[in-house]
Amino acid sequence: MKDIAIDLMALEAGELGVEETLDLFALLIKSGMAWDLQGSYGRTAERLIEAGLITRDGEVSPNAVEQAMAA
C-alpha cells in the first residue's frame, strides 16, 4: 500500500480485493487510525477482529484470505 488515502478511496469505490482490504484494515488497526476515522471503519475493524481475520495488534491471521472468501 503506497498511500492510505488512495487505498481508502479505492475501498469506498469497491476496487479492493479481499487481500488488499485485509491488509488495509490491518494497517488501520495497527496504526490506531481505524478508531479515529468515521465510525464505519472502526466497526468494520472490530468485525474483522471478532471474526479472527485480523489480530488486535493489526496482523492478518494465517488463512484469513481463504476464510474471508469462504464466508
Results as ranks from 00 to 15, higher is better:
residue 24 L to T: 00
residue 57 D to K: 12
residue 45 A to M: 05
residue 4 I to Y: 08
residue 52 G to Y: 11
residue 37 L to P: 03
residue 44 T to L: 10
residue 34 A to R: 00
residue 23 D to R: 12
residue 16 L to K: 04
residue 56 R to G: 14
residue 11 L to Q: 04
residue 2 K to F: 09
residue 6 I to N: 07
residue 50 E to I: 09
residue 4 I to S: 08
residue 6 I to K: 15
residue 2 K to P: 01
residue 45 A to W: 01
residue 43 R to I: 14
residue 47 R to G: 09
residue 34 A to Q: 00
residue 57 D to A: 15
residue 3 D to S: 13
residue 28 L to K: 00
residue 38 Q to N: 14
residue 48 L to V: 01
residue 59 E to G: 00
residue 24 L to W: 00
residue 33 M to S: 12
residue 21 T to C: 05
residue 26 A to R: 03
residue 18 V to A: 15
residue 57 D to E: 11
residue 45 A to I: 04
residue 48 L to H: 01
residue 20 E to S: 08
residue 15 E to K: 07
residue 50 E to M: 12
residue 42 G to V: 11
residue 7 D to V: 07
residue 39 G to I: 14
residue 4 I to P: 02
residue 53 L to R: 08
residue 32 G to A: 13
residue 20 E to Y: 04
residue 40 S to Y: 12
residue 44 T to H: 04
residue 35 W to G: 15
residue 41 Y to Q: 04
residue 20 E to M: 05
residue 7 D to F: 08
residue 37 L to A: 03
residue 34 A to D: 02
residue 6 I to W: 06
residue 45 A to D: 04
residue 28 L to I: 06
residue 19 E to M: 07
residue 56 R to W: 07
residue 39 G to P: 12
residue 49 I to L: 04
residue 41 Y to F: 09
residue 2 K to I: 10
residue 43 R to Y: 13
residue 32 G to K: 09
residue 9 M to R: 14
residue 20 E to L: 04
residue 25 F to K: 02
residue 42 G to C: 09
residue 22 L to M: 02
residue 25 F to S: 02
residue 56 R to T: 11
residue 44 T to S: 11
residue 55 T to V: 03
residue 46 E to P: 01
residue 48 L to K: 04
residue 25 F to D: 01
residue 39 G to Y: 14
residue 29 I to H: 06
residue 31 S to C: 09
residue 25 F to T: 00
residue 51 A to T: 06
residue 25 F to P: 00
residue 42 G to A: 09
residue 4 I to G: 03
residue 44 T to N: 07
residue 23 D to N: 15
residue 35 W to M: 12
residue 55 T to I: 03
residue 40 S to L: 14
residue 51 A to W: 07
residue 12 E to N: 10
residue 49 I to F: 02
residue 40 S to M: 13
residue 46 E to L: 15
residue 39 G to Q: 14
residue 53 L to S: 06
residue 58 G to M: 06
residue 27 L to K: 09
residue 30 K to Q: 10
residue 50 E to T: 13
residue 41 Y to G: 04
residue 6 I to G: 08
residue 33 M to Q: 12
residue 54 I to T: 00
residue 2 K to Q: 11
residue 33 M to T: 11
residue 10 A to V: 05
residue 14 G to W: 07
residue 9 M to H: 10
residue 25 F to Q: 02
residue 30 K to T: 00
